[in-house]
Simulated scan of single mutants.
Amino acid sequence: MPALVQETLFGHGSVHSLDGQAHRHRKATFVDVAYEDTQVERLTPWLEREWETERAAWLGGGIRNAYQAATGALGRAVMGWAGLPGTPAAKTRWSARLAQIVYGFGAPYSPAYGVAVLNRLWSDRHAAHLIEAVRAGALEPEPDTALFVWAHHRDQSGELLSARTAGVELQNSIRPMIAVARFVAFAAKELHDRPEWRTRIATETATNGRLVGGELATLFAQEIRRTSPFVPMLPGRATADIDIDGQHVAAGGRVVLDILGTNTGENSWAHPERFAPERFLGVEDFETLTSFIPHGGADVATGHRCPGEKLAVAGLTAAIAVLSDPRLRILDTGLQVNLRRLPTKPRSGGDMRSVNPSRRCPFH
């Protein structure tokens, strides 16, 4: 990854800066930490609880946006899942810092980028302290949590990672879930424009009695991930001379993976310009769709697909279930998307409020 991206988004020394066997060795730990279905099952009660908290806050009155709510709900949920200590308020504050890093990395040389660098420094220091506390026995997280695993991870030579590097990878285990808040903002926009889907998802959620895993919510989540452009491409460098589709790329040459173009290409998708969640009906394993790469492509273990993709889908489906609640209203304003901004989202983040005026705060 380019240095400007490592400085903020991924962190120096992270798995994203490795190649070959070193990359695969550390990537395997991410697979253990996040990819297995048991990890999704562990995350589910955290998602249910935190999204219920956000829904109650909306119903209590006032106007808040879906992006802010998701930053808090997804952040607290994934931090609890990862074994991190702290009060809900402290986790919400750290979530906001990590969300700002995602916002700032795409605007080099801007004030937002400078703030992202400061938030990265704070987060690296805080995460390193957590790793050191586990190694010293002051913290005792559960063995299958990200905090425990990264505190005890060893490199190929059998050495523990430095506390700082282990802390960087701990953040790389939780920050992608917080970045899903941008998908949630897009979901608010699309649900606003498609009230029939809101009604169908609300009925499904009421029938199931839970927020995570509804079929219709999952179809909607997958189409959001296909069409939302908040991370439209990923850069890398060729490690050897290669020829791709008639083009020669010399070793060290820049290669860019066109995520949005692949997800919406006419050669792979029927009517790709349409927002059509039903296109995913009957797809048992979305990872087999080679042109569906919102979290990277190829095999999770050997390629560059994100191991946390299943967790992200679970978090997004829970959000969509809450946003579809008929007691909530998605406001009409601020739903425009600036496609010149990386990363992007609807301008307002998806402002929402209770439909019951008696429950609203008179000052908002």
Results as ranks from 00 to 15, higher is better:
residue 84 L to P: 09
residue 114 G to W: 03
residue 37 D to N: 14
residue 34 A to D: 05
residue 63 I to D: 15
residue 21 Q to K: 08
residue 9 L to Y: 02
residue 3 A to T: 04
residue 19 D to N: 09
residue 21 Q to G: 02
residue 4 L to D: 15
residue 77 A to F: 10
residue 21 Q to N: 13
residue 7 E to W: 09
residue 83 G to N: 01
residue 41 E to L: 06
residue 17 S to T: 05
residue 90 A to D: 02
residue 25 H to V: 03
residue 60 G to L: 09
residue 77 A to D: 13
residue 21 Q to R: 02
residue 102 V to Q: 11
residue 25 H to K: 09
residue 92 T to E: 11
residue 75 G to D: 00
residue 19 D to L: 07
residue 69 A to W: 08
residue 28 A to G: 13
residue 47 L to G: 12
residue 18 L to N: 03
residue 121 L to Q: 14
residue 83 G to K: 01
residue 51 W to F: 11
residue 69 A to I: 15
residue 88 P to K: 01
residue 76 R to Y: 05
residue 6 Q to P: 04
residue 50 E to M: 15
residue 85 P to V: 10
residue 26 R to C: 08
residue 113 Y to F: 13
residue 48 E to S: 09
residue 90 A to R: 06
residue 111 P to A: 14
residue 10 F to G: 07
residue 110 S to N: 11
residue 82 A to G: 00
residue 108 P to Q: 13
residue 11 G to A: 11
residue 3 A to E: 10
residue 54 E to P: 15
residue 49 R to G: 08
residue 24 R to G: 03
residue 51 W to G: 06
residue 66 A to R: 06
residue 23 H to M: 09
residue 61 G to V: 06
residue 25 H to F: 01
residue 88 P to I: 01
residue 97 R to M: 14
residue 81 W to L: 06
residue 15 V to C: 12
residue 120 R to T: 00
residue 22 A to Q: 09
residue 42 R to H: 11
residue 82 A to C: 07
residue 70 A to S: 15
residue 41 E to P: 06
residue 6 Q to C: 04
residue 43 L to G: 10
residue 92 T to I: 07
residue 28 A to L: 14
residue 89 A to W: 10
